[in-house]
Nucleic acid binder design. Sequence first.
DNA 1: CTTTCGCCCTGAGTGC
DNA 2: TGCACTCAGGGCGAAA
Length: 299
Amino acid sequence: MPELPEVEVVRLGLAPAVTGAVVTAVDVFDERAITRHDHARGSFADRLTGRRMRAPQRRGKFIWIPLDPDPVVEAATPAGDAVLAHLGMTGQLLLREAWARPEDEPHVRVRVELRHPQAGELAVFFRDQRTFGSLALDELVTTDAGDAVPTQVRHLARDPLDPLFDDRGFLAALAVKRSAVKRVLLDQRAISGVGNIYADEALWAARIHPEQPANRLSRAKARMLLGEIRLVLGKALIEGGTSFDAQYVNVNGQAGYFAHSLNAYGREGKPCPRCGTPIVRVSFMNRSSHFCPKEQRLR
DNA sequence: CTTTCGCCCTGAGTGC
DNA sequence: TGCACTCAGGGCGAAA
């Protein structure tokens, strides 16, 4: 459920607490929470303990926190390394007092204890009900544009809120692909950060049927779609993200408000806010698509 | 190469 | 009340 806006809210919340902090202890309570980690180079806890964190970064739905160079294995990782996090469906990164007990709340998979030069001792809890999320220590690699990203993020396209997002490249990808336009929106190699909720919302705003073949969109329509993607992601970010239940929350455990602003997603049978036609839900790619059957026609 | 499919997982909700 | 079943879906790797 956490898509770009939710993940960005988490990154912004994490930043003041972790930037400059030193990891004093790492407890992994459930190994499934670190399935992204490559154990061949050492355990997650061993590699993270003692390291100093820099400012958190994000691309698409991935967050990472670059670390100051490790004095022990400096040569092995020329661009450095980082703690990488993907929240999956139900992952949460929560700021806690250092004395807070992980066993007092459900699904705490990992606890990272920090000492911050100003804020002092604190802890970050990684909670994850469905364990689709994961943490890892990952190597950074330098991209063509000169920025350093974890190896697991390398294959992702930039996200539409990234100033270096390749508008022309994305439009070209749409123009070439015969698959459903929604499939392209969910393909993180074409555009990252968009998930089921914001794909449905952007398609509704642009009046495009989710199963319209991407290459059948006019250039103008495709450009409008990209604009609506940026618009809906930006609005959701300002509202603190979309929360349906207690699953998505910021680092302080608070829900976002954007669920009230959804026009299509999760509104099956309810009137389209523009024309009143009941929103329909159809099965698509093992998930659901919600759209207005009157305004979003398959051509 | 593209596209599809199955798997990972838990708790809320539904139907009988 | 209880039990079986369905659903939510991001990422990834295997299969077609």
